[in-house]
């Protein structure tokens, strides 16, 4: 089992290969897609390490803020996963965080197979 974390001043992203999940925490509002590259790489790494047909979970329930550049990165990942059709994807959101109840379902519009669980 291994756990890999990328963190900045106000956020952290943790990939746990045992639970096959990536957890986002804090407030993530980086300037450009270049600054988001390490997070993009971690998402792709998790994707490739997940066994075929198995479930990978993206847990946003502790992510208070994500800017549009971040939404773009997550959306690109969902589109890439859809195209590869290698795994199943689950997205966990938090009902109390308004952007999540409004915008996380957009990911399902990008790939209908994405399971959305707003808790």
């Amino acid at each position: 089992m291994s756990v890999e974390t990328i963190s900045g001043e106000e956020y952290s992203v943790t990939y746990n290969d045992n639970t096959q999940s990536i957890k986002f925490d804090g407030s993530m509002r980086l300037r450009t897609s270049e600054e988001y590259a390490p997070i993009n790489d971690l998402l792709l790494k998790a994707h490739d390490a997940t066994p075929a047909e198995s479930l990978l979970t993206l847990d946003f329930s502790s992510l208070k803020f994500l800017n549009s550049s971040g939404i773009n990165i997550v959306s690109r990942f969902v589109i890439a996963a859809r195209k590869q059709a290698h795994l199943q994807l689950k997205v966990i959101g938090n009902q109390d965080i308004y952007w999540q109840q409004k915008s996380l379902t957009n990911l399902q519009r990008l790939w209908t197979a994405v399971q959305i669980d707003i808790q």
Binding site: S33, N72, S75, R76, I79, A80
Partner: peptide
């Protein structure tokens, strides 16, 4: 979003 997935366009008004 679909276009951005092919090529990062930046500043595309997504916000």
């Amino acid at each position: 979003l679909e276009a951005n997935a092919e090529q990062d366009l930046g500043g595309s008004g997504l916000g």
